[in-house]
């Protein structure tokens, strides 16, 4: 997209281009939902098979860190939504500030995640063959940690993608590529970030708060 208002040659007007980009993004979000869905199915199958082991194993997770992480993600979701609102009103500087806040919050999330992982690696609560911890009652507790590391690992990977997308959009915004007429990339990145938050909203109770 050379200049910010240029409409790509095969679209008839800017409106059609914006709606197409949004529909394309929503369809892509479906694939993300089903990618995570696969591991949720594994979670459901093994929780039905080993319910008490899941209950005992979930105690090994630190609920306070999980809650803080959820709050961090929700606030980052809020800031990216406000960022989009700012650019819709054409205020580029405020939008950049909000995007920056989102990136910082995302990094905070990853740092907290790093502490949780380091703690588990130290204790030996790892998936599959690497599981050497023996404080959890129940059969095959390593299955819980396989699913835990799969879900949170893929989610963290998506957070990294989110951070790079947000940084790319922030840089372009600072260069003045976006305005009230054309802010599609910001909106697209916002949708992606909200989905990452959406998945964590389901992931948090499933892993940290097993009744």
């Amino acid at each position: 997209m050379s200049s910010s208002f240029h409409v790509a040659h095969h679209f008839s007007d800017a409106e059609q281009q914006r709606e197409s980009a949004k529909l394309g993004m929503w369809v892509f979000l479906l694939t993300e939902i089903l990618l995570f869905g696969g591991v949720f199915v594994a979670y459901a199958v093994f929780r039905v098979w080993y319910p008490d082991m899941f209950y005992n194993a979930h105690k090994a997770l630190d609920v306070t860190m999980g809650t803080v992480n959820t709050a961090v993600l929700i606030v980052s979701s809020l800031t990216v939504a406000l960022g989009i609102r700012e650019i819709q009103l054409g205020r580029q500087k405020q939008c950049t500030r909000y995007l920056l806040a989102t990136i910082v919050l995302a990094c905070v999330f990853l740092v907290i995640k790093y502490f949780e992982y380091a703690h588990k690696i130290h204790l030996g609560q790892l998936p599959g063959k690497f599981y050497t911890f023996d404080g959890i009652a129940g059969t095959n507790p390593h299955v819980f940690f396989s699913i835990y590391f799969l879900l949170t690992g893929i989610h963290a990977f998506h957070i990294l993608i989110g951070i790079s997308l947000l940084t790319w959009v922030m840089i372009k915004n600072m260069k003045g590529h976006f305005s009230a007429q054309y802010f599609t990339p910001v909106e697209i990145t916002g949708l992606y970030w909200h989905l990452v938050d959406l998945i964590w909203i389901f992931l948090f109770p499933l892993l940290y708060l097993i009744g």
Binding site: L23, W26, L29, G38, F40, V41
Partner: peptide
Amino acid sequence: YSLTLLSGIACLMIFIVITL
């Protein structure tokens, strides 16, 4: 767009429920 989101979630529900 709401329809696309719901169809994705419905497809996931089908996968979970029938596997269970």
